[in-house]
Amino acid sequence: MNESPALEATALGKRYGSNWALRDCTLTVPAGSVTALVGPNGAGKTTLLQLAVGLIEPASGAISVFGHDPRAEPLAVLPRVGFVAQDHPLPRRFTIGETLRLGRKLNPSWDDAVAQRRVDELGLSRRQRVGTLSGGEQAQVALTLALAKRPQLLLLDEPVASLDPLARREFLSGVLRAVTETGMTVVLSSHIVADLERVCDRLVILANGHTQLVGPIEQLLAEHRLLTGPRTDAAAVARVHQVIRESHTERQTTLLVRANGHVYDACWEVHEVDLEEIVLAYLGTTSAAARVEAPAAVAR
């Protein structure tokens, strides 16, 4: 790829007081990908996205968007980035029409046809006041504002967290449709893993301010396996594969491993795992001894 990546973080850190919200975070978001940024609350997802759009300044390391520093060159970054903050803040006293006018006034690349089409599809009227809309509708209006900017990179911070399942589905469909139409890069953060697989092709797991896992979802699904077998020590397996999580009952041992090639040992029953299990396994390791191994997973 000759163009710089949509988003690139190098040893990125952000500290609030003595608390590191994000620490030593290195990751690349290739242009054209749809990345899910997953982690529990307080993992640093919001911090990372706000750093990307220049709302906050890194304490250490660097972040660049299409090769530009968002803080140093806001006007090289902002017009190319659509950002929907957590809880999708909107001026509540504005009508939808005024909100779109706001977008037109503040964005040179504004496409009113896109905005109008989305408002029509949502069954909303330009005269409705934003404050009277439901949470799902407000999220959609905020997304409309971001999409009509015709961004090359769309950053969504917990866009569906406050929505009911139906509104969640509709919102993600809107994102998916915009992606297929324009080929834009998307990074969306979430602590809900369900639904993400349908929309995203890459996964970043963040916990306690560190990246735990980064990679294409398809590859991650192929690499991770659940092994069950008679109770035993995990050490033998750990010599070849990376053990993410182990649990033992009286007779049985269950390991979730990131397999280094095929698992040949016949004493293990090998199962495929789904995305949610992988995410939970990695989030579980943050408090376990296996955390020491986590940075190795990052340095892929």
Partner: peptide
């Protein structure tokens, strides 16, 4: 107070 500054500061204008 209510966070709408995040909306304005992420349009195509400087803060």
């Amino acid at each position: 107070d209510n966070g709408t500054y995040r909306l304005y500061w992420t349009q195509s204008i400087t803060r």
